[in-house]
Amino acid sequence: MSKGIAYESDRGCIIVAAALLDKQLEDSIRKHIKRFSVSKSLEKSLFDLSGPISNFSAKISICRSFGLIDEIAYKDLMILRKLRNSFAHEAEGASFTSASVRQKVKSMHFVQHCMKELEIDRYNYTEKPKEENKDDTDKKHHPKMLEEWKTLADGFLNYDKVMFCFAVDELEYHIKHYSNLGIPPPKTLSQGIKEIKKSKSQTAKD
């Protein structure tokens, strides 16, 4: 998992993740450009602040249009782009505890994949008794939410944030492999981790 972004603030995690994948897309484009003997000055002008592919959105579109990424990577990158934009400009709701953020994160292909493949222990929050829920209209003071905030303050990581960080690694690996060979990797990182764990478990039993 990308520990460097996992322990960033939620806003920092999303923004840095987008920057890492922006760099990966740029590397893929630059490698593709070199096949056509483009001058260094022209290549540089493409990525300058006023250049045609200077921003994240343009790089995503260019990479998809030229077959450097597939549709799976494209859709996940577009979700990340929207998250990055909202986190960069909104003071409220820029958190993995936000329902709308969780929904977007969980819609990412590689997040779903990591949730399926990786066995991560989760903290079980206690639900508020039904009888106490009747007169409680202030969601900010819901015990389950307060308990979640406390576990975060104690240094535990939000589950959706952890899965997002794993997914960033998966997405970066997927992009590298696809842009180089034109096909997805035969095995994802999380599948490899799962096989290693299974192999070690089997060895321990023997």
Rank of each mutant, 00 (worst) to 15 (best):
L118Q: 00
A88S: 04
G67Y: 02
A19K: 03
K23E: 15
G12C: 09
R30D: 11
F87W: 11
I120N: 01
E132I: 12
L42Q: 10
I72L: 09
S37Q: 14
L49E: 12
R35P: 06
E71T: 02
G51A: 04
G51R: 07
R122C: 06
C63P: 12
R30F: 04
E71Y: 00
K59Q: 09
S57M: 06
S100H: 10
S41P: 03
L83K: 05
A73N: 05
L20D: 15
K116Q: 10
F87I: 08
Y74D: 11
Y74T: 06
V111W: 00
L21Y: 06
T97W: 07
S54E: 11
I62K: 10
E26P: 01
S50V: 11
S107T: 01
H32I: 04
N55F: 09
P52Y: 06
C13R: 13
D136A: 14
L118R: 05
F66L: 15
N85F: 01
I60G: 08
N85D: 04
F56T: 01
T97I: 10
Q103R: 08
N85I: 04
Y125K: 12
K130Q: 14
D76M: 10
R81S: 07
N55M: 07
L68K: 10
S28K: 10
M115E: 15
T137V: 13
Y74S: 09
D27G: 11
I53A: 05
V105G: 00
S45I: 08
R35V: 08
A94V: 08
N55L: 04
E43L: 12
K139S: 13
L68F: 05
D138K: 03
K104W: 11
L42E: 13
S95K: 11
Y125N: 09
V101P: 14
S61P: 03
I69G: 00
R81H: 09
S98K: 15
K104V: 12
R81D: 07
S37C: 11
I69K: 00
K31F: 08
E117F: 08
K44R: 12
I69D: 02
K134T: 13
Q24A: 11
E71W: 00
G93C: 11
D76F: 09
K40R: 15
V111A: 01
N85Y: 02
I62Y: 15
V105A: 02
N124D: 15
D48M: 15
K116D: 03
S107F: 00
A18V: 00
E119Y: 12
L118A: 03
Q103A: 09
R81N: 14
K82N: 02
S57A: 10
F36L: 05
A17R: 00
S98G: 10
K59F: 11
L68R: 06
A17D: 02
E117N: 08
Q24V: 07
E26R: 14
G93Q: 06
